[in-house]
Design a protein around this nucleic acid. Structure first.
Lengths: 104, 104
DNA sequence: CATTTTGATATGTTGAAATATATCATTAAA
DNA sequence: TTTAATGATATATTTCAACATATCAAAATG
């Protein structure tokens, strides 16, 4: 377990599930073995930075370096949608049965 | 050269220089060989995610996954201060001779 | 209910390639 | 001279791909 990147692993997993992609579908999309994606999402491996960027982009995310003092503002801006801990439980509004494509 | 992470490498280098830290000082701060930091800043190696997080935090930066649609807003929010090309020259106010701890 | 099938995810192994690290040398600049 | 940056070498550790297989959940079927 690589604790330092656990939050990134969880964010990647959450983003994939948000897009309703299976690990297999994602693996075919970027040409990375499904088994490796599983290990990454469980923080069982310390993935390389280029793989992090590639994986993120496949999920419409960008890896950014944010000054610590701006982190709260950024979090509120993006609704902490990619931060673990903000599980966004079954908060799905009853009137919205299907979310899927949230990005522009 | 690992092109996919070149922008991260440049951002790390810019952030370090902004804090007026030498590679050696940074290396001692986080216990990473100075020679390795040099390779990282030149994108000569594909560093591991945990090292990216550790390096970023030592420079008061956080590695975040930002939804693509929010990237422009985040960039304007943080003033693109960590994006290379925004060198932020000698903008240090004359009345402030010593910066160091910027975070609250 | 029990069984089986199906889909998705997790785990384990092997071998090749690359990083991580330490150390030392060189170069350049203050 | 002192400090900083880069480059080279050698060794240890780890990722990563490929592949097989195990686990788990849900659905279908007997």
């Amino acid at each position: 377990m690589v604790y330092a990147i656990e939050y990134l692993a969880k964010a990647l997993k959450a983003a994939r599930e948000n897009k309703k992609l299976s690990q297999r579908a994602l693996s075919q999309k970027i040409g990375m073995p499904q088994a490796h994606i599983s290990k990454i999402e469980n923080a069982a491996v310390d993935l390389r930075a280029s793989n992090l960027v590639e994986l993120a982009r496949a999920l419409d995310l960008e890896v950014m370096l944010v000054p610590r003092k701006h982190v709260p503002a950024v979090n509120s801006l993006i609704g902490s949608s990619v931060l673990p801990g903000t599980e966004r439980r079954e908060q799905v509004p009853a009137y919205r049965l299907d979310a899927e494509d949230e990005n522009g």
